[in-house]
């Protein structure tokens, strides 16, 4: 049997076998097939093959497929995962998908880690640089010791503490540091002359209670020089 020379008609035969032609095209092609033995034979082959393939196709478990599918990224961000299987159980369609509502702003983990590292670095820098710019407790105490004509060890804590109390928070911190430095000496270890000297100094400091120390580095030396 010779083949049909009408290529356009012949090309449409699979679609007719597949039942995928519009009404007019299908009618026209059927009319051609009725008058063309080659196309009629080919259509029989194609129809048999289509039937064969369709019958040989095993059923597909779409539920199992849906269970394995990934969740879209936007669904992960916006709402708890609603699985297609559970959605399919509801016949009523939901409203149109939300275009792009934004929920609470969430930083990614790496940004949080970077922020924590920065905070740690700033804290360490302040801890290290603060004594350099504002002076250390040891420096203050050393200055007070050097400037005192009497036994300055017992004088320093008290005198510095009084000055700090009047000079504000910065002086208070210096006084606390001084107490730490000379913490090994107590009043009971002082002699009468030393205690007298100490009381005199305290009196002078209280008389100048409003006096601001010239520098945080030398809160006592100012009082000492005035003696």
């Amino acid at each position: 049997m010779t083949e049909c020379l009408n290529e356009s008609m012949r090309d449409l035969l699979p679609l007719l076998a597949h039942d995928a032609l519009d009404g007019d095209e299908a009618t026209q092609l059927r009319a051609h097939v009725a008058s063309c033995g080659a196309c009629a034979a080919e259509l029989r082959v194609l129809t048999a093959a289509a039937t064969l393939f369709a019958t040989a196709t095993p059923p597909v478990n779409t539920a199992a497929i849906l269970a394995k599918l990934p969740v879209p990224r936007r669904a992960l961000r916006l709402e708890p995962a609603v699985h297609p299987l559970s959605v399919a159980a509801h016949s009523a369609p939901r409203s149109a998908p939300r275009s792009a509502p934004r929920t609470a702003f969430r930083l990614p983990r790496y940004a949080l880690a970077a922020a924590a590292s920065l905070l740690l670095m700033v804290t360490l820098s302040v801890t290290v640089l603060r004594p350099i710019f504002f002076g250390s407790a040891a420096t203050v105490d050393t200055a007070s010791v050097d400037s005192g004509a009497v036994d300055s060890a017992p004088v320093s804590p008290t005198g510095a503490g009084s000055s700090a109390a009047s000079a504000g928070a910065a002086s208070a911190s210096v006084a606390r540091a001084s107490v730490e430095i000379v913490g090994g000496t107590e009043l009971k270890d002082l002699g009468v002359a030393e205690l007298t000297q100490l009381l005199n100094e305290l009196d002078q400091i209280e008389a100048n209670v409003s006096a601001e120390p010239r520098s945080l580095r030398e809160p006592i030396s100012a009082g000492g020089e005035g003696m």
Partner: peptide, 16 residues
């Protein structure tokens, strides 16, 4: 891709 997972079910049913 907008988060509507019912669309996945329709695609699977259509092409499986």
């Amino acid at each position: 891709q907008s988060g509507d997972q019912r669309a996945a079910a329709l695609l699977v049913e259509r092409h499986a």
